[in-house]
Protein backbone atom coordinates (compact mmCIF):
# COMPACT_ATOMS: atom_id res chain seq x y z
CA UNK A 1 0.00 0.00 0.00
CA UNK A 2 1.53 3.27 -1.07
CA UNK A 3 -0.89 5.52 0.83
CA UNK A 4 -1.38 5.07 4.55
CA UNK A 5 -4.96 6.15 5.39
CA UNK A 6 -3.95 7.22 8.92
CA UNK A 7 -1.22 9.46 7.61
CA UNK A 8 -3.51 10.88 4.95
CA UNK A 9 -6.09 11.69 7.65
CA UNK A 10 -3.52 13.37 9.92
CA UNK A 11 -2.79 15.85 7.17
CA UNK A 12 -6.43 16.86 6.56
CA UNK A 13 -6.22 20.26 8.31
CA UNK A 14 -3.42 21.47 6.04
CA UNK A 15 -4.25 19.47 2.92
CA UNK A 16 -8.02 20.03 2.95
CA UNK A 17 -8.45 23.38 4.64
CA UNK A 18 -5.08 25.12 4.22
CA UNK A 19 -4.87 25.58 7.99
CA UNK A 20 -1.65 27.18 9.19
CA UNK A 21 -0.29 28.32 12.57
CA UNK A 22 0.34 32.01 13.22
CA UNK A 23 2.87 32.72 15.98
CA UNK A 24 1.39 34.88 18.73
CA UNK A 25 4.85 36.30 19.43
CA UNK A 26 6.27 37.33 16.04
CA UNK A 27 3.39 36.76 13.61
CA UNK A 28 5.25 34.19 11.50
CA UNK A 29 2.83 31.93 9.64
CA UNK A 30 3.93 28.28 9.53
CA UNK A 31 2.39 25.93 7.00
CA UNK A 32 1.82 23.14 7.77
CA UNK A 33 1.19 24.16 11.37
CA UNK A 34 4.10 23.72 13.79
CA UNK A 35 4.25 23.53 17.58
CA UNK A 36 7.39 25.71 17.80
CA UNK A 37 7.77 28.86 15.70
CA UNK A 38 10.78 28.45 13.37
CA UNK A 39 11.38 32.22 13.51
CA UNK A 40 11.26 33.03 17.25
CA UNK A 41 10.78 29.64 18.93
CA UNK A 42 7.52 30.83 20.42
CA UNK A 43 5.04 28.12 21.34
CA UNK A 44 1.78 30.07 21.26
CA UNK A 45 -0.04 29.93 17.94
CA UNK A 46 -3.46 30.69 16.56
CA UNK A 47 -4.95 28.67 13.69
CA UNK A 48 -5.36 30.67 10.48
CA UNK A 49 -6.69 29.65 7.09
CA UNK A 50 -4.49 30.63 4.18
CA UNK A 51 -5.84 32.82 1.39
CA UNK A 52 -5.75 30.60 -1.74
CA UNK A 53 -4.56 33.45 -3.99
CA UNK A 54 -0.87 33.57 -4.89
CA UNK A 55 1.76 33.68 -7.62
CA UNK A 56 4.26 31.26 -9.11
CA UNK A 57 7.65 31.93 -7.54
CA UNK A 58 9.53 29.26 -9.46
CA UNK A 59 8.63 26.05 -11.25
CA UNK A 60 9.85 23.01 -13.15
CA UNK A 61 8.21 20.70 -15.66
CA UNK A 62 8.20 17.00 -14.74
CA UNK A 63 8.58 14.74 -17.76
CA UNK A 64 9.59 11.54 -15.93
CA UNK A 65 7.23 11.27 -12.96
CA UNK A 66 7.26 8.90 -10.01
CA UNK A 67 4.88 5.93 -10.33
CA UNK A 68 2.05 7.69 -8.44
CA UNK A 69 1.87 10.44 -11.05
CA UNK A 70 2.32 8.27 -14.12
CA UNK A 71 -0.02 9.35 -16.85
CA UNK A 72 -0.01 12.99 -15.76
CA UNK A 73 3.34 13.96 -17.34
CA UNK A 74 4.31 16.45 -18.47
CA UNK A 75 3.10 18.45 -15.47
CA UNK A 76 4.23 21.59 -13.73
CA UNK A 77 5.53 21.52 -10.16
CA UNK A 78 5.86 24.97 -8.64
CA UNK A 79 6.68 26.87 -5.51
CA UNK A 80 3.71 29.18 -5.06
CA UNK A 81 3.88 32.22 -2.80
CA UNK A 82 0.51 32.95 -1.22
CA UNK A 83 -0.76 36.38 -0.29
CA UNK A 84 0.46 36.15 3.33
CA UNK A 85 3.98 35.15 2.37
CA UNK A 86 3.59 31.40 2.87
CA UNK A 87 5.21 29.27 0.18
CA UNK A 88 3.74 25.93 -0.86
CA UNK A 89 5.02 23.35 -3.32
CA UNK A 90 2.26 22.03 -5.55
CA UNK A 91 1.29 21.20 -9.09
CA UNK A 92 -0.06 23.84 -11.44
CA UNK A 93 -3.07 22.28 -13.16
CA UNK A 94 -5.31 23.23 -16.08
CA UNK A 95 -2.46 24.89 -17.94
CA UNK A 96 -0.13 24.22 -20.86
CA UNK A 97 3.31 23.76 -19.21
CA UNK A 98 4.80 26.02 -21.88
CA UNK A 99 2.52 28.86 -20.76
CA UNK A 100 3.62 28.91 -17.10
CA UNK A 101 5.74 31.89 -16.09
CA UNK A 102 7.24 33.06 -12.83
CA UNK A 103 5.03 35.72 -11.28
CA UNK A 104 1.93 34.19 -12.88
CA UNK A 105 -1.14 34.74 -10.66
CA UNK A 106 -2.69 31.48 -9.48
CA UNK A 107 -5.24 30.28 -7.00
CA UNK A 108 -5.24 27.06 -5.00
CA UNK A 109 -8.10 24.73 -5.88
CA UNK A 110 -9.23 21.45 -4.29
CA UNK A 111 -8.07 18.52 -6.44
CA UNK A 112 -7.36 14.81 -6.35
CA UNK A 113 -3.61 14.50 -5.67
CA UNK A 114 -2.99 10.75 -5.79
CA UNK A 115 -4.74 7.47 -5.25
CA UNK A 116 -3.71 4.09 -3.98
CA UNK A 117 -4.52 2.09 -7.10
CA UNK A 118 -8.10 1.28 -8.11
CA UNK A 119 -9.14 0.00 -4.68
CA UNK A 120 -7.20 2.16 -2.22
CA UNK A 121 -7.78 5.48 -0.55
CA UNK A 122 -7.86 8.72 -2.56
CA UNK A 123 -5.71 11.59 -1.29
CA UNK A 124 -7.17 15.05 -1.87
CA UNK A 125 -5.44 18.38 -1.50
CA UNK A 126 -4.76 21.58 -3.41
CA UNK A 127 -3.21 22.42 -6.75
CA UNK A 128 -2.64 25.83 -8.23
CA UNK A 129 -4.71 26.83 -11.25
CA UNK A 130 -4.37 30.01 -13.35
CA UNK A 131 -6.23 32.83 -11.56
Amino acid sequence: MSLNPARVAREFPSRYRLEAAKCAGCGHVAFPARLVCPACRGTKHTAVTLDPAGKVLTFTVIHVPPAEFKGQAPYVLAVVELADGVRVTCQVADVDPAAVKTGMPVSLEFRRIQEDGEAGVIAYGHKAVPA
Partner: peptide, 11 residues
Amino acid sequence: ARDEDTITMAV
Protein backbone atom coordinates in the same frame (compact mmCIF):
# COMPACT_ATOMS: atom_id res chain seq x y z
CA ALA B 1 -9.38 16.22 -15.81
CA ARG B 2 -7.80 13.24 -14.03
CA ASP B 3 -7.66 15.27 -10.81
CA GLU B 4 -11.28 16.43 -10.92
CA ASP B 5 -14.11 14.29 -9.59
CA THR B 6 -17.48 14.68 -7.90
CA ILE B 7 -15.79 15.48 -4.59
CA THR B 8 -13.36 18.14 -5.88
CA MET B 9 -16.10 19.87 -7.89
CA ALA B 10 -18.45 19.74 -4.89
CA VAL B 11 -15.81 21.34 -2.64
